[in-house]
Write a protein that binds this DNA or RNA. Structure first.
Lengths: 233, 233, 233, 233
DNA sequence: CATGAATGAGTGTTCATTCAT
DNA sequence: CATGAATGAACACTCATTCAT
């Protein structure tokens, strides 16, 4: 998410439409593609529908993205991988205790990704990875590895500072990912599958899961005060 | 742990030659279909490949199943919905305390479904439900509803017997489903996505999750002794 | 060009239509494909048109040939490469003098290939080889090499028997190919380009070219009596 | 052998700036187009690539040539048809004997066209003519007819002067064209098809073919001394 | 009962041509 | 003059489903 490019300054004397076009087209296509990929999956999404929803023709789409696969990669970069730089930065500058850091991380994820359409991408990958090896390896390198590394760094920090008990971080990662994954799936699949749409309050769910995690992770001395006495209403 | 296979009892009263034919073909087809649906998903599985793997021709498949969709339904019935009768039975006859019942339920699920190919079906539904509404409503009625009902009955039993605190069962259901879902996804997608194949021991994972659940569900007095002091190695 | 396969003997008691179908479909497709490839070239020929002309649907074509490229290869094998075995055989058993052999070779080529649609294939390759490398290497291995080898064997035989002067056979090959190529091009392109359709009698043209060749190739002693005093009417 | 380039004389009387612009762009485009048309054929050449190679945008190309087809026509005019005026002139002023004239004609063709990229155009027409009727008729009128007429005039001159035997000129034309065509094809296709790149020396090939032709065309009295005793090394 | 040949609608991608800037 | 963004028709190939044998 770089700021708007500095060209804008010398753009000022040019007609606005032209310069905005240059930004607008791919953006609209990426948004349409995100929606459709999340709704239907990679294979079932037709490029023509993406183009239509973005208000352009099929040919125009291929002007900006050389293939459906590259379009998908661009969607992932725009919505997920692009965020890791910022998050790693935040990690480096964070000064509080590690349980707070973990809490901050999960809630931050919810704000930026989990609560948006982007949370549909992990769901999508679950099923399409097998059928599109190139997609799988792309996602592995650009999302899973940086994400896992970030979580592992948090867990390691906790252990280094004596806040967390010694643990196998590559296992701990799963325990952190599980609630995120569940929320994403719930948002994009479960609630449309289940007829009684029990309202699952994401913040409360995350809080409860964090509390549970802390019981497993933390030394008794640093166990944070549970925000909620018990996670069930 | 699983009972002796129930087929034997049912088989005795059927004429042997005819009935075995009728079972044999569909049985092989269902097995092949389960494998392929789980591996590739519903849409990406080609009926011809199912037929080939079962050793019959494409035409023969359509002799037994009028469409790809019906084939899928049959797979689900064979592997999941067919089990609910037995489980509801067990529930009715269960005499122990409810935490044990929940534990028994999760581990039983793991033995019969979670550890088998059948656990790929929920993963599959996550993505295909949106594209095949008839599939979604079928799965909703034949799997989600009976499953949720069963879990709700357990939770309700716990509350009725004073073992569980009062709770919103339609929310509690999610907390029970979450670890099952996570294990299924881990088995069928995550471990193939993640490069460092951290060994996730399903039994230990289920135990740990159960302990966490119990902290949330149980009255302090009935809180079961945690099997593991802490869930991390 | 193998004989009809021996299965035919046990076919006798089967309904004729079925067994003939098995032969008929690919045959009709190959014929239609030959016509269209020769008329329009490889790239410009649409598989759907091939199918239509053969009286089947597009899908059926792909039932017999996995791709347009393989269809083309099959056309070439059916019409050209398949003949080389027979010709090499004839060469081995030929007992006359070499000038006669060469004459026999050129006229034989005209009867079997030159005068048929198949003579359009070399023309086609001239232009498509650059754009379809796989096609080029296929043609190189299955047509050019065997063909050139056959001609070189003839030239070598002539030299070995003292009928031909010593020569560089890889150059001599071109002199033999040139009139064949010209006839093929004339048949498939030139006569449609030229408005005055001067009738070029292929037999007379070949005879004249052969006489010219013999003046170059032969020892004065074996120079065959020119069939025509001079090649021009 | 070629004269000093005639452009210089024509250029002197034109205003420099404007005309150079007008020539420069189309000139680069025509050169790029010739290369690509010859390499890939008419249909397979993309106008965008032509523009790129000429260093201009696709839109600019269409500024100078209203369509791909007109671009091709311009290429042909620039490289082939434009030469006929000069050649007819030379014919009118030629004073030597007709066999020499024919020899001069063939070698002149080789210098100006055969040895350049332009010799790829006849090859190209062989295949594309069928698919682009407008192209075929253009080529027919602007190249084939003038070319054939020129050759016919030479043959007729030979007959009129008693140097050549009486012949059907519309057939004789083919005998003159054949070696030119073969050389052009060899240059642009055959040598890239054949694995053993036998070096074909164009001058020697033309000489040999001319000698052969003379045996057919000439009255014994005017039969020119063969330049080479026999055409094979 | 079993086969496998036949179908045809559907999809990702290319490219000549147009036109607003 | 020059650009390059936009278009949309075209095409190879796939696959669930049917049906004659």
């Amino acid at each position: 998410m770089p700021d708007s490019p500095p060209q804008d300054t010398r753009t000022s004397d040019r007609p606005i439409r032209r310069s905005r076009r240059k930004e607008a087209r791919p953006g609209e296509l990426l948004a349409a593609a995100l929606d459709l990929f999340v709704e239907k999956g990679f294979a079932a999404t037709r490029v023509e529908e993406v183009a239509q929803r973005a208000g352009v023709s099929k040919g125009t789409l291929f002007l900006y993205f050389p293939s459906k696969l590259e379009l998908f990669k661009a969607v992932v970069r725009e919505n997920i991988s692009g965020r890791f730089a910022e998050w790693n930065d935040k990690f480096d500058r964070f000064e509080g205790n590690t349980p707070d850091m973990l809490r901050y991380c999960l809630f931050g994820w919810w704000e930026r990704i989990g609560s948006t359409q982007a949370s549909g991408i992990p769901k999508l990958m679950m099923s399409e990875a097998q059928n599109f090896p190139e997609l799988a390896s792309f996602y592995q390198h650009e999302v899973m590895q940086p994400g896992n590394t970030l979580i592992k760094r948090i867990l390691q920090r906790g252990m280094d500072r004596g806040e967390f008990r010694p643990m196998d971080v590559s296992y701990g990662v799963y325990l952190v990912l599980a609630p995120m994954l569940f929320l994403a799936l719930w948002k994009h699949s479960l609630n449309t599958c289940c007829d009684d749409h029990a309202q699952l309050d994401p913040h409360r769910y995350l809080s409860a899961q964090l509390d549970m995690l802390m019981h497993g992770f933390c030394q008794p001395t640093t166990l944070p005060t549970p925000t909620l006495e018990h996670p069930l209403p």
